[in-house]
Amino acid sequence: MDLKLELKEKLIDQLNLEEVKPEDIKDDEPLFGEGLGLDSIDALEIIVILDNNYNIKIGNPEEARDIFHSINTLATYIEANQK
């Protein structure tokens, strides 16, 4: 499956975004704040998604701010760092 689609499905499932469909999440729109409107607890959930599914650990919170910006930035980081 396309990594971006897979990520959207995992976000919807893990973050209980009940009324959101994968096609509603644009690849380049911000996940936090004005875009999908995720919050700090969601950020923790995304850290768990990356760890459990892609074996990627985010150690530096400052780094996470850029990585979690959008589906595009998440997918790029996963492709570069997946073990």
Partner: peptide
Amino acid sequence: GSLIAPGAFI
């Protein structure tokens, strides 16, 4: 060593 989703814990 793996992480546990925090939402339910909170």
